[in-house]
């Protein structure tokens, strides 16, 4: 592998890694607020991508299609929270897993019925003239993806650390009862977490669509990779999720170069299983995973 190729694989790794990071953030937000792993998280990413594509094809200008996709997924996420998650809060892990798995199957099938089985493209946000960087080429869309990811991560950091609502959300993650006693409404924190996690996932899906197309079945893989990323970093820690996502993306990129692109998707699961076997709390996680 030449240095040029190496750089190329790193670039593509960072691009995909950003999407995994956003998906992992989606997992983390919901997990922190509710203790639930949303098995339909990947489907929200897929839905973001396909909604943007659908709206664009319906004649909306690209920026409006992007925003429209965010709104659509926001609505879906909020409805899902209200209809399925809220009644399940007291019912235990098994019921939550089953319901969110059911949601992922339903959303995937619904997407197939609406948009068909083909993988669909979206035009890049600002053309596709590659930029040369040290001999490797960088598409403008990559900059969009990475840039937006950075903006989202910074905005979330600001929200969690500086705003009152953000602090309330964190209080809930640490101790729901105490937070409730302090007058923070747990229900609205959960709703907010779902909404934000939906919007972030949708943004990821809409931004990656121009790079890797999007089909009804893309969500399952994206979801698992997002979870692998979140687990690698340490479930429950947003910055670790971002780190996990980028690491996973880069490892995948290098694996494509070193092994073969066919096995690219297996990398995430090997990492996921390894982390679960060796260090279930992840690289930076302190949270106990053995809970009853």
């Amino acid at each position: 592998m030449t240095g040029q190729q190496f750089l190329q694989y790193i670039f593509s790794g960072i691009t995909n890694g950003s999407i995994y990071a956003l998906t992992a953030l989606g997992f983390t937000l919901v997990y922190n607020a509710t203790g639930i792993i949303n098995f339909a998280q990947g489907e929200l990413v897929m839905l973001g991508g396909l909604s943007a594509i659908g709206l664009y094809r319906a004649g909306l200008p690209l920026p409006l299609a992007f925003v429209g996709a965010l709104i659509i997924v926001l609505i879906v996420a909020v409805m899902f929270e209200q209809l399925a998650i809220r009644p399940l809060m007291a019912k235990g892990v098994l019921a939550q897993v089953i319901a969110t798995v059911g949601a992922s199957l339903a959303l995937r099938t619904a997407a197939m019925m609406i948009w068909g089985r083909e993988a669909l493209p979206l035009p890049p946000f600002s053309g596709d003239t590659p930029i040369r960087v040290l001999g490797a080429s960088l598409t403008p869309q990559t900059l969009w993806v990475v840039g937006t990811t950075i903006v989202i991560v910074l905005a979330l950091q600001f929200f969690y650390k500086r705003t009152l609502t953000g602090k309330a959300v964190r209080a809930c993650a640490v101790n729901p009862l105490a937070a409730r006693l302090m007058g923070v409404s747990y229900a609205s924190v959960v709703l907010l977490s779902f909404a934000v996690s939906g919007v972030i996932s949708a943004a990821g899906g809409a931004m990656v669509a121009p790079i890797s197309f999007m089909s009804y079945s893309s969500g399952a893989l994206l979801g698992l990779k997002g979870f692998a990323a979140a687990t690698l970093g340490g479930l429950g820690n947003p910055l670790a999720a971002v780190f996990g996502g980028l690491t996973l993306g880069i490892l995948e990129g290098l694996a494509v170069g070193l092994v073969s692109s066919g096995y690219k998707d297996a990398i995430a699961f090997v990492i996921l299983l390894l982390v679960l076997f060796v260090r279930p709390q992840g690289l930076f996680g302190g949270r106990v995973v053995e809970r009853e």
């Binding site: 792993i37 098994l94 299983l273």
Partner: peptide
């Protein structure tokens, strides 16, 4: 591990087997 970890691990395992069958 409890609950969702087994679910995710088996999901990942299933996906690996699928990829191997294809590849």
């Amino acid at each position: 591990l409890k609950g969702h970890y087994l679910a995710m691990a088996t999901l990942g395992f299933g996906e690996i087997v699928f990829i191997l069958l294809v590849q």
